[in-house]
Amino acid sequence: MAEITLIEAVRQAMDEELARDDRVFITGEDVGRRGGVFRATLGLFDKYGPTRVIDSPLAELSIVGIGIGAALYGLRPICEIQFADFIHPAFNQIVNEAAKMYYRSNGEWRVPLVIRAPYGGGISGGLYHSQSVEAFFTHIPGLKVVIPSNPYDAKGLLKSAVRDPNPVLFFEPKKGYRLLKGEVPAEEYLVPLGPAKVTRAGSDLSVFAYGMMHAYCLKAAETLAAEGVDVEVVDLRTLYPVDRATILASVTKTGKALVVYEDNLTMGYGAEIAAIIADAAFTSLDAPVRRLAAPDVPAVPFSHPYQEWFMPNPEKIAAAMRDLAAY
């Protein structure tokens, strides 16, 4: 098996789906000749031509609107939003049209649309290239929200997303594009949307994370292992609908839960995980459910020291794990 980067896994997934199904096409800003600002679509324009890999105007509302229309007419669009920070102009299209179409038409119309967007901070991107937006969309029934944490899952989940009959938001941890490497088999495979994965079995406490934070949690878990604390790490992978069974099984085993996310703390995605645990695993809890997230400030700061202060990192996560283990 070859070791590839997360961005290469994303590119391979789209390449394979474009080759497999004529209905699949890509649209977004600079996805064509330029190959995307992160090189996610590098070479695809040359391989599949300008009718399959389409440069869009600089207008996110239009990118998603076109995707919804094409999906309703039977195509399988993959819309790229250059940075998740710029998805907000398309919010109405996603929430009011894509998410509600199947329900509104009593099951007659479906929107098999994938929206890809790099998200997350820690890349010195400042206010408008660092945002985490998953919490907005995990609030909307009718949408699926997926965040991979490694190349294998990125490829398998994205291929599943393309084949899913309903709209899927696929957020990619951009800091991990080249940082997160892993082995990916040559033969085709899919990773199903829905199930979370226990990526490190442990007995002392459970940590729930996704995307870049999941990689940090694994690293912090190693630090704690050296200190004699056995941490279980769960990669949520599909944020909505979320895999309650895996979460509850883990907490029932360990009795302690920490949720880590890089979005602002308040009303962030981890709040729902904490609520699920408090509700359905209350009598298994041996400590308060804890959240580690970014502080409630309006944006990821551009200044490097402030960015470090803002972002959760393996050291902060290890400290939170230590604290919970000692409770």
């Binding site: 009795g255 209350f282 009598t283 298994s284 809890l285 041996d286 400590a287």
Partner: peptide, 13 residues
């Protein structure tokens, strides 16, 4: 006879 302090839900169960 000591004060047991906080009893967590799982300990109580």
């Amino acid at each position: 006879g000591r004060d047991l302090g906080f009893i967590s839900p799982v300990v109580a169960r």
